[in-house]
């Protein structure tokens, strides 16, 4: 193992970790500003210019609150819950290709922590264990509302993971690889616009809806539905443990936007990218990727403050009776078209 690689990867891990936390912090501010804008209010404007220090004030408040554990709670699992939520949220950033390779110090540096050949499956795997944070936390609280939240979260996750998996398989069939870098590079097209969304609009729609459900965002935020369940799975939580749960949701939102941008919107490909090369291309590509991510985060927020919450039976109906059949039919048609292009008929 050469030392350069270790230093390069460690720096990249630190950078991705830091950027993820920074973006998640400012997403809380961004969300409140977007909400205020959509509701014709001003939003937070006291702490610093334009309220830009608001997230720091919120975090400070969270840190200095009493760290309380309910008497009848299962103590260790109660502590473990938010930890798992945060851990799984931070893990997915490892396989996302953040940009084209950078040439520096006489070596080509890949802006991806680990280009494992099953990248997209890794994301699905981490996503599927992410629900344990909510389930364990909700159950360990020993509170009926928390338990309801946990149960809702798990059934929702399981139902929507199927449709999400099928739509991912469709994209994998288009590219012929499970590696995220190959999927992104495969969308280069003729001038950087061969994005999957133009070939697979239905698949994109299904994936987007399931991503909303998997991140527990409105209109799918039934696990923490405040009008029925007080706070859902985090009813009993306070101080930074609650902060971890809320923070994990914002990190998940950032990561799912990144995955949507990478799978369907060409990742770091942008129109006219062939005119650039080397480090200019790498920087512009990374900026384009982050631009797409910010756009999808905005869409997530836009939807949250526009649509009312689903009822639970509507949620199950949508997942099992609409999304899964649609994605299956889409998969079948894609398979037939690919077989036709390969000259099977």
């Amino acid at each position: 193992m050469d030392t350069g690689l270790i230093i390069e990867k460690s720096l990249l891990v630190l950078a991705v970790f830091g950027i993820t936390l920074l973006i998640a912090t400012y997403l809380t501010y961004f969300e409140r500003k977007v909400a205020a804008w959509l509701q014709d209010r001003i939003g937070p404007d006291r702490a610093g210019p334009f309220g830009i220090l608001q997230p720091l004030a919120d975090a400070g408040k969270m840190f200095f609150k009493e760290d309380f554990i309910p008497r009848n709670a299962d103590k260790w699992l109660f502590i473990l819950g938010p930890g798992i939520a945060m851990f799984t949220a931070l893990m997915t950033g490892a396989v996302i290709p953040w940009g084209p390779n950078i040439e520096a110090f006489g070596r080509s540096i890949s802006l991806q922590i680990a280009d494992i050949n099953i990248g997209i499956l890794f994301i699905m795997g981490v996503l599927s264990i992410g629900v344990y944070g909510i389930m364990i936390g909700g159950w360990a609280s020993n509170n009926k509302y928390s338990l309801f939240g946990a149960i809702r979260a798990s059934s929702q996750m399981i139902s929507y993971e199927l449709a999400m998996g099928i739509s991912v398989i469709t994209i994998v069939m288009m590219t012929g690889s499970l590696s995220l870098r190959d999927i992104v590079d495969g969308q280069h097209g003729s001038f950087g616009m061969g994005w999957n969304v133009f070939y697979q609009p239905v698949c994109f729609l299904v994936f987007f809806i399931t991503a909303l459900a998997e991140t527990n965002r409105a209109p799918f935020d039934l696990p923490e539905c405040e009008s029925e369940l007080i706070g859902g799975y985090h009813t009993e939580y306070g101080s930074m443990k609650l902060g971890f749960f809320l923070f994990a949701e914002y990190i998940n939102m950032f990561i799912s936007s990144a995955v949507i941008a990478a799978l369907f919107f060409g990742g770091y490909n942008f129109p006219g990218m062939d005119a650039f090369s080397g480090n200019t291309l790498a920087i512009l590509g990374t900026l384009a990727f982050f631009g797409k991510i910010v756009f999808f985060i905005f869409v997530f927020m836009w939807i949250r403050w526009t649509l009312p919450r689903f009822r639970f039976d509507q949620l199950m109906h949508l997942g099992w009776k609409s999304l899964i059949p649609i994605s299956l039919i889409n998969l079948l048609i894609t398979g037939l078209v690919i077989a036709f292009n390969e000259g099977w008929f």
Partner: peptide, 15 residues
């Protein structure tokens, strides 16, 4: 193994 067992079947068990 993680997706199917840890992520799906065990969630149902726990449920």
């Amino acid at each position: 193994n993680i997706i199917v067992y840890a992520g799906a079947i065990m969630v149902l068990f726990l449920f």
